[in-house]
Design a protein around this nucleic acid. Structure first.
Length: 703
DNA sequence: GAGCACTGC
């Protein structure tokens, strides 16, 4: 097997510039592969826990990271901020926090160590594993906190949590006085929330907490950026072990991604030893097409080569379909998984020996000046290409086929643009205001989103009455920041309380904050499923998607058994996992509202009766949060946005797609793909609009 | 008259 190419320049620089601790992991890796290793710790005795811990220790001490413990700890303890670059399999996420736990809690007995993760599963899996290694139950000395699931108690000293969760804690206690050390893991992913935490920690250690220790853990490419941000904090480089992956490029660029990927898979199948193939593609459309084509072709390839089994993988796919990609195949077969970015970080498939990379991804880019989101297919970054390639070398040496030329690869940007640079930032700005930041433009941004973006966010928050005309956070803004919702939806909820229709609005807001609740039916079932949805949501048929969600929710909770619920979900092509989440979100929102206003919400009055709420009041609550998201019907039957007069169309997924009678519409999302689409659409009467918005800034032309 | 990458509280 040919050895893979050497690291890129930036990776080498990072390792040369600093003290290098190299090791080769022989144990299991420190991330997703922990799945399925859980032991029912609750049922085990102290003796059993100790025994398991001792057994695991035998594995842990064979890890060279254990051998370098003293040297790593020396750096960590003598610096306030340390950047730790650790590759996959370096054990950094499980071992380092335990080393620190030993040292720091000896000195600060009642304080905690926080380890943040961008994803819930990672936080839960890591805490579960580390508790075993430590020899305790999860939720005792070692625990975790993610939304809907808090396994910590007063004895917890090592706490794994999602970065969203830590930000909540920051908003409630801006000194983080519970903690002696904060470890930010996977910082290179540059999620908005990770960026905010880093900026916040920088201010905190230079202000009220000069004693707080900070460790930033990241993959190679961004080390210098983090180091420079924290006043040249030392970078520690811990090498993991990856198997070599041979990289192959195209000689000529291809113009049809699906065609090129299929050819490549067939070629691999004919020339290479057994091993599964993982193909990275931009989106669902290309994936579905490739699956159909490859499954058709594989029938005609003969029996001298493995039978190709094509499988799709993307987030909108039902979990039962997603599960198929993890099942090993029996017999003379080769699995070909066509995946979105999902398989780049969130999911690991074992058995993959070959990666085919289209070099493309889909990305949602917010246009501040237009006030809309666009969904674009764009080339990936070098970092992303390297991550995708690495998926072929997790268990054995592998090969990667890049469907672009080497000179095209050289032209790719080094890193993916951080999320905060291409997103709407009303929510981050409100969080900063809540924390007490006055000057948002000059705050310690890891990546400053720009003056225009910030001013537009401030303006938006002012219109939602979260800020006063001095730019100071109002008491309404304080409440909005504490609700686990986008500011617009928080505003809707607060309006609903004032209007006396909190319960139906909470149900709808809960539906809106769960992703992929309504699944896309297969084309041949579409009309049938639509009919079923219309027959259940009789008022939604007239008033649109928000009202439909309330009716679907009512229908869902009126079913008794979970078997009935599952059947119903399947029948209407809605996500059962989604609806289970709706129920959780709903009860969380109710309890948060109770806490905010120190009052008890009487849930009994929410009946199964769809007619027990007033449609006009409910939709007017949404107008309070989405004032600018309204459009007026024109004589030619198109809609024009009331803010800019742009043409906007009702999205085909909406209940109102076929409706020709709406005088005006309200929508919660405005997204540009092939043209401007309104999603989650409600019917508006012109008089409703006038009552709420007033005549001043909306031009209304009657149909 | 037609479509949607991924997270988080």
């Amino acid at each position: 097997m040919t050895k893979g190419k050497s690291f890129s320049g930036a990776e080498r620089n990072a390792s040369q510039a600093v003290k290098t601790v190299k090791f080769y992991s022989r144990g299991r890796s420190d991330d997703e592969s922990l799945q399925g290793e859980h032991v029912e710790a609750e049922r085990l005795s102290k003796h059993d826990l100790k025994r398991i811990s001792n057994n695991l220790l035998k594995t842990r001490i064979t890890l060279p990271v254990f051998k370098y413990k003293d040297s790593i700890m020396e750096h960590l303890l003598s610096n306030q901020v340390t950047i730790l670059i650790g590759e996959t399999g370096s054990g950094k996420s499980t071992q380092l926090p335990q080393f620190l736990l030993e040292k720091l809690t000896a000195a600060h007995g009642n304080k905690r160590i926080a380890v943040t993760q961008p994803r819930r599963v990672a936080a839960i899996n890591l805490a579960t594993r580390v508790a075993q290694e430590y020899g305790c139950r999860v939720g005792d000395r070692v625990g975790y906190a993610v939304r809907f699931d808090n396994k910590t108690n007063s004895k917890t000293r090592l706490k794994y949590l999602t970065d969203g969760m830590l930000l909540r804690e920051i908003m409630l206690d801006r000194n983080l006085s519970d903690y002696t050390c904060v470890i930010i893991d996977e910082a290179h992913e540059r999620t908005i929330l990770t960026d905010l935490i880093l900026g916040f920690l920088k201010e905190l250690i230079h202000g009220l907490r000069p004693d707080l220790k900070v460790v930033v853990m990241s993959a190679t490419l961004q080390a210098e950026k983090f180091s420079a941000f924290f006043n040249d904090a030392p970078i520690l480089f811990v090498e993991g072990r990856k198997y070599p992956v041979q990289r192959n490029y195209l000689k000529e660029p291809c113009d049809d991604v699906v065609d090129a990927i299929i050819r490549c898979c067939v070629q691999i199948n004919q020339g290479e030893q057994l091993g599964d193939i993982l193909c990275f593609m931009p989106g669902q459309e290309e994936i579905d097409k490739a699956v159909v084509v490859l499954n058709k072709i594989s029938e005609h390839l003969g029996t001298s080569v493995p039978r190709l089994i094509a499988l799709p993988l993307y987030a909108a796919l039902p979990p039962s379909e997603q599960a198929k990609v993890f099942l090993p195949l029996k017999g003379f077969k080769r699995k070909v998984v066509f995946s979105t970015n999902l398989a780049e970080t969130s999911v690991t498939i074992s058995g993959v020996k070959f990666v085919v990379d289209s070099g493309l991804r889909k990305v949602k880019v917010w246009r501040h000046n237009l006030g809309l989101a666009t969904l674009l297919t764009v080339p990936i970054s070098k970092a992303s290409a390297s991550q995708r390639t690495g998926r072929a070398g997790r268990e054995n040496p592998g090969k990667c086929y890049r469907l672009y030329r080497e000179q095209d690869y050289q032209k790719l940007p080094m890193q993916t643009e951080p999320e905060i640079a291409r997103s709407e930032i009303t929510s981050p700005v409100l969080m900063l205001k809540k924390i007490g930041v006055q000057d948002i433009v000059n705050w310690s941004w890891l990546e400053n989103p720009g003056k225009q973006a910030i001013l537009l966010a401030l303006q938006e928050l002012y219109q939602l009455k979260a800020l006063d005309d001095q730019g100071k956070i109002t008491s309404k803004g304080q409440q909005m920041a504490l609700l686990p919702l986008a500011p617009h939806l928080s505003c809707v909820l607060l309006q609903a309380r004032d209007s006396g229709c909190l319960l139906p609005v909470i149900d709808i807001v809960s539906c809106l904050s769960v992703e992929n609740l309504l699944l896309n039916p297969l084309p041949e079932l579409r009309d049938e499923i639509n009919e079923k949805r219309f027959s259940i949501a009789t008022r939604g048929a007239k008033f649109g998607d928000l009202i439909m969600m309330k009716e679907l929710y009512n229908a869902y909770v009126s079913l008794r058994s979970s078997a009935e619920k599952d059947e119903w979900c399947k029948d209407l092509c809605v996500s059962k996992r989604g609806f289970r989440n709706v129920v959780k979100v709903r009860s969380q929102l109710i309890s948060y509202m109770e806490k905010l206003f120190n009052e008890k919400i009487d849930v009994s009055e929410t009946g199964m009766d769809n007619d027990s709420f007033d449609v006009k009041s409910v939709i007017q609550c949404f107008l309070a949060g989405f004032m600018k998201n309204s459009a007026i019907g024109m004589p030619d039957r198109s809609f024009r946005t009331s803010t800019t007069g742009e043409t906007i169309s009702v999205h085909p997924s909406s209940m109102l797609f076929m409706d020709r009678s709406c005088p005006a519409i309200l929508y919660t999302e405005y997204i540009f793909t092939t043209k401007g689409y309104a999603r989650n659409v409600s019917r508006l009467e012109l008089s409703w609009l006038q009552e709420i918005v007033g005549m001043s800034n909306v031009k209304i032309s009657a149909r």
